[in-house]
Design a protein around this nucleic acid. Structure first.
Lengths: 249, 249
DNA sequence: TTGCCGGAGTGACTTTAGTCACTGCCCGAT
DNA sequence: ATCGGGCAGTGACTAAAGTCACTCCGGCAA
């Protein structure tokens, strides 16, 4: 296909090819459908369609009417709110194996938030009707939906708690600790990690603005907790950071 | 019983009497169980227990392990988070016909927030096991649970949006508009309404502190939008208040 | 090379939020 | 009548958060 003619100009693509065999794999890897038999998975896979998104592409906007449920096959999908003033608040970032938009599928409402790809991503789509029918036939799946939605609810409560009770500084520290936990590499003078996102992105996750990320990082560095060098970050005083989260507040 | 010896000293009471026949009524009025037949309701009602709470009494704390599901028969239950610093953030206020704590029932986790009565209240309690079994036998109920949880999720997203994008002033205005809508009485010089809660309570609902409620009310009055007199409030410029919500931001 | 662009850093400032300490008021108990 | 407790109002202040306007840098496209 020789598709080297500048990625950014590729139109929003919706293809149904070259992933056929994977669809079943994706279903199998998604907790929602963990309890299904091979036959059931096969049957469901026949009803499914796929979609590719490039980094930054919008999947749907807040208020769009809901056509179905998505599963993440690869990449990352950012679920977020957008304010009139142009600020973003990220509600969730879903990776492979996650599903999202289960809810509007059931209550028939519109999407309460927007979704875009924060990396090039592949999705599997199940139409509302198919999924509803499937749930009716497989009560286990319905119970799984409840469980999934439950953890989502807990996460939202966590966001509310952070927004309501903590400062940007504390939220940033918490985020860094998470990253360090997840993909930090221990080394002689601390835990090294690579920031894969822009300050802008972090700001959206914490519900604030770019400048505060920049300033707070500088300040944490000045205080000796961190060392930042471009997108490399070294946590020098993990314990100290943890203390910052609990002590004042 | 001659129980006139100062209400506040009555011990936290858990009774199972005098409400027996109502239990079915409560179940019938709760959307969760709307689809059940009389027989089913009757069966379920046999498994249920009741609980009374006085204004201010705590039903469970955040982190308590979850024993079952509650339905509100009368009164109001406040679901809230409590910070280390002693601040509260209300997540929901559930009135008659509502259920709460459905979620931990399924995922087996602890309560993510605390619950207390904001008025004297009567509750119906269904144990975790009973409810789970019931859902397995009645897939419709499971679907209803999803719907209920869905609307809860939307509300939480709304709270996040407000906390992240708006000021205390705007949240207060929004709250007043809601109240005016719900129980305001139109009169010659505006919509009159009675505040049934303390500033403290409003602060908890908006995720801020008492003083800011007081100050913002004064300011709205000074600006001519309102008139406050003790717990009587008159909205003098409804349209103006609505404009305040959309214009700057 | 040049020029542009997106991301990042920062000074200077304004606006909100939150804290502390008091005062005053109403009301019900002694 | 008075005392005490809960609630409300406010001044004075501190501290976060957010805004604006730049500058700087590094990459990459013309």
């Amino acid at each position: 296909m020789l598709a080297l003619e500048k990625i950014k100009q590729r139109p929003a693509s919706e293809r149904t090819g070259d992933m056929k065999e994977n669809a079943e794999t994706v279903l199998r890897k998604t907790p929602l459908f963990a309890s299904l038999t091979e036959n059931e998975i096969h049957a469901l896979a026949g009803r499914v369609s796929k979609r590719r998104l490039q980094r930054g592409e919008l999947l749907f906007a807040e208020g769009d009417s809901c056509t179905g449920l998505y599963l993440v096959a690869s990449g990352k999908i950012r679920i977020f709110k957008l304010s009139l003033a142009g600020r973003e608040q990220v509600l969730a970032i879903e990776g492979p194996g996650s599903s999202f938009a289960e809810l509007p599928v059931f209550d028939g409402g519109n999407y309460p938030a927007a979704a875009s790809a924060s990396e090039d991503s592949e999705l599997v789509f199940i139409s509302r009707k198919d999924f509803q029918n499937f749930c009716r036939e497989h009560p286990d799946v319905a119970l799984k939906v409840i469980a999934v939605v439950g953890s989502r609810l807990r996460r939202l409560v966590g966001i509310i708690e952070e927004l309501s009770f903590t400062t940007v500084r504390q939220r940033l520290i918490a985020l860094i600790l998470q990253l360090a936990e997840a993909d930090g590499a221990p080394s002689k003078d601390g835990i090294q990690l690579e920031l894969t996102k822009s300050h802008q992105d972090f700001a959206a996750e914490l519900g604030t603005v770019r400048e505060l990320i920049s300033r707070n990082l500088s300040r944490l560095q000045a205080e000796g907790f961190l060392e930042v060098e471009g997108r490399k970050l070294v946590v020098k005083d993990l314990a100290g950071l943890k203390r910052e989260l609990t002590s004042p507040e």
